[in-house]
């Protein structure tokens, strides 16, 4: 059974799980745009829903089987990773890499994204340290590993294995 949620609830969930800086700072507009795209998808789904299938005057929802589910978290995550990678292809600046709207939107996915980010780390050590710190509020990386993406990935993967978040 697929659970269909209204865009309003989804918006609340996104904003609740977003890091404190979402909505503020120079990159806020881009981040809102990315989140806005996701909300637009929900509105589109709600419009396509069979009449009467959604409860409430705002299209607020019920548990339904008749409407296509919203994009699962994993699909959303992979789309954002693709968008991020293609957006930072030759960028050297760590600031630009981390403040890329898609990267910020991944942080906005909230704690459910942690296993997905860890799995991504097993595929390719990349700039996930900042996202994982924001998502977990923890920092298992020793100071001497600063800048060494392989050592950083290894520290996070150990952290994830100890918590059974990855195998």
């Amino acid at each position: 059974m697929n659970e269909v949620v209204s865009w309003k609830d989804e918006r609340k969930r996104i904003l609740k799980s977003a890091p404190a800086h979402v909505g503020r700072g120079p990159w806020a507009r881009e981040t809102r745009e990315v989140l806005g795209c996701r909300l637009a998808e929900h509105r589109k789904l709600a419009r396509k829903a069979p009449k009467g299938s959604l409860g409430g005057s705002q299209g607020a929802f019920a548990k339904q089987t008749s409407i296509a589910p919203v994009a699962p978290m994993e699909e959303q995550f992979l789309r954002l990773v693709d968008e991020w990678r293609s957006g930072i292809g030759g960028v050297s600046s760590a600031t630009q890499i981390i403040l890329h709207p898609a990267y910020q939107a991944i942080i906005g996915l909230g704690p459910d994204a942690i296993p997905l980010v860890l799995r991504e780390l097993t595929r390719r050590p990349a700039h996930w340290n900042w996202a994982l710190r924001a998502l977990t509020n923890q920092n298992p990386v020793p100071a001497e590993a600063a800048g060494n993406l392989r050592a950083i990935a290894s520290a996070w993967l150990d952290w994830g294995r100890r918590r059974h978040l990855i195998s």
């Binding site: 600046s93 760590a94 600031t95 900042w130 990386v141 600063a146 800048g147 060494n148 950083i152």
Partner: peptide
């Protein structure tokens, strides 16, 4: 190593 004036 990656060098940049950014945390981490």
């Amino acid at each position: 190593t990656c060098w940049w004036p950014w945390e981490g």
